[in-house]
């Protein structure tokens, strides 16, 4: 039981970190700070605009794959992974 509690705590920590990044790239960079970030320009568009229409989506992708990889490692570390076929 203790083992499973530790597994769950590590999982929650990972989720919290990833969701913080999720929030930062979309709500923070893409909306709240967009005007400020727009001062930095890449290829004719402001950085805030780029995050809102491109960058946030690429980051979301990275987040899910990082999560999948880390969780699979965590499953093995705590020996709660599924049987291999």
């Amino acid at each position: 039981m203790n083992k499973n509690t530790d597994y769950w705590k590590e999982n929650l920590r990972l989720v919290a970190i990833l969701l913080a990044i999720w929030f930062a790239v979309s709500f923070l960079f893409g909306i709240i700070l967009a005007d400020t970030l727009d001062a930095i320009r890449i290829g004719g568009v402001g950085l805030g605009f780029w995050f809102a229409q491109q960058g946030s989506i690429y980051t979301f992708l990275a987040l899910i794959f990082v999560y999948t990889k880390k969780m699979n490692a965590l499953d093995r570390k705590y020996d709660v992974h599924e049987d291999d076929d």
Binding site: L19, S26, A52, S56, I57, L63, I64, Y67
Partner: peptide, 13 residues
């Protein structure tokens, strides 16, 4: 754009 993609992060996590 963000709303219809960011939901997948919530789904996965």
């Amino acid at each position: 754009l963000m709303g219809w993609t960011g939901g997948y992060v919530l789904l996965a996590l």
